[in-house]
Amino acid sequence: MTGSRVRAAKGQGALLRDRLLDIAGQLLEDGGADALTIRAVATSAGVTPPAVYLHFASKTELVHATCLRVWSSLFTELEAVSRDVSDPVTALYETCVAYIAFGLRHPAQYRLVMDGEATEASRRNEDACFRYFRDKVTACRDAGVPVESRTETARLLCASVHGAVSLLIHQERDAWPRDTARYLGRAASAAVHGALHTAHASRPSLATLARSD
């Protein structure tokens, strides 16, 4: 019958959903939010738009799912770089490097979550990121780094790493530093040393904090 939809085999629906998200993510990376449409995803997947709507009720839902899929890997990456680091200040530094690197690898998704229309993803991730950094600050305080306010210090760290990402992803790539690894290291070091150095009225010396570098 012309126009009838062939129902996916049992167990194939999840595979199609994953494929649609793969395609949506690539469209975002290649062309930004304007390139991500239901029709474009359907065409790339070789299905009809109604087949996409079976999994995502709207473009907004598709954007949310695409961004959340990427961002769900963030905390796995942060834990991977800091889990086996015994010094908490060094662990915090490695966490900041990984966060900035994540944002630069996924500029479209990062912009949509932090500055754009992926509001559901924003609500979930902003709070989770803040709590994650506050836990890292708590570990530094427990190790003897004088921290007057975990919340204020975590806010400063979040502002610093977010700024380091945003400074670049809102520019064309040819304007990015040639040595991205150096940029990551210096931005993370500035974030950690700045936040911890100003975390208490009786500030530790920079030489003390520099032991973690």
Score class of each variant (00 low, 15 high):
Ala35Met: 01
Gly163Thr: 15
Leu78Arg: 06
Gln109His: 14
Ala187Thr: 02
Arg182Asn: 11
His197Gly: 13
Leu62Tyr: 02
Ala188Arg: 03
Ala201Glu: 04
Arg150Cys: 12
Asp22Glu: 10
Ser160Arg: 00
Leu21Ala: 02
Tyr183Ala: 03
Ser205Asp: 11
Ala181Trp: 09
Ala40His: 05
Val145Ile: 14
Thr208Tyr: 07
Ile38Tyr: 03
Pro146Ile: 03
Gly116Met: 09
Val113Arg: 01
Arg155Cys: 12
Gly32Asp: 05
Ala121Pro: 06
Val63Leu: 12
Pro204Asn: 06
Ser212Lys: 06
Tyr132Glu: 01
Phe56Ser: 06
Pro107Gly: 04
Arg150Pro: 05
Tyr132Gln: 01
His106Cys: 07
Ile23Glu: 00
Phe75Ala: 04
Leu78Phe: 03
Ala57Cys: 05
Asp34Phe: 01
Ala207Thr: 15
Arg69Tyr: 09
Val52Ser: 02
Ser82Glu: 04
Cys96Asp: 08
His170Arg: 10
Cys140Trp: 12
Ala191Asp: 00
Gly13Pro: 00
Glu172Thr: 15
Leu27Lys: 03
Ser205Arg: 12
Glu117Asn: 10
Asp87Ser: 09
Asp30Glu: 15
Leu78Gly: 09
Leu92Asn: 10
Ile23Lys: 08
Val52Pro: 03
Leu20Gly: 07
Val165Lys: 08
Thr48Ser: 14
Trp176Leu: 07
Ser202Leu: 13
Met114Thr: 13
Ala8Tyr: 09
Leu196His: 02
Val97Lys: 05
His197Thr: 07
Arg124Gly: 14
Val165Pro: 00
Ala33Asp: 01
Trp71Val: 06
Glu120Lys: 10
Asp30Trp: 04
Thr43Cys: 00
Arg39Val: 10
Leu62Phe: 01
Leu15Asn: 10
Ser202Asp: 14
Ala14Pro: 00
Arg83Leu: 08
Ser4Gln: 10
Val137Asn: 03
Ser122Gly: 00
Thr66Glu: 04
Arg150Tyr: 08
Arg211Gly: 13
Ala118Glu: 04
Glu120Gln: 13
Thr153Asp: 01
Tyr53Leu: 14
Ile38His: 06
Ser72His: 14
Arg69Ser: 13
Val165Thr: 11
Arg134Asn: 07
Val97Phe: 07
Leu157Tyr: 02
Pro107Cys: 04
Leu156Pro: 04
Thr43Arg: 14
Ser58Arg: 07
Gln171Leu: 15
Cys140Tyr: 11
Glu117Lys: 05
Ile169Asp: 04
Leu157Thr: 03
Leu104Gln: 00
Leu184Met: 02
Arg105Thr: 06
Val147Asp: 02
Ala24Gly: 12
Trp176Glu: 01
Lys59Met: 06
Leu74Gln: 05
Ala121Met: 00
Ala128Gly: 11
Glu126Arg: 15
Gln26Trp: 02
Ser72Thr: 13
Ala118Leu: 06
Thr153Ala: 06
Leu15Arg: 14
Trp71Gln: 03
His200Thr: 08
Glu79Val: 07
Asp87Lys: 03
Ala8Trp: 05
Ser166Thr: 15
Tyr132Ile: 02
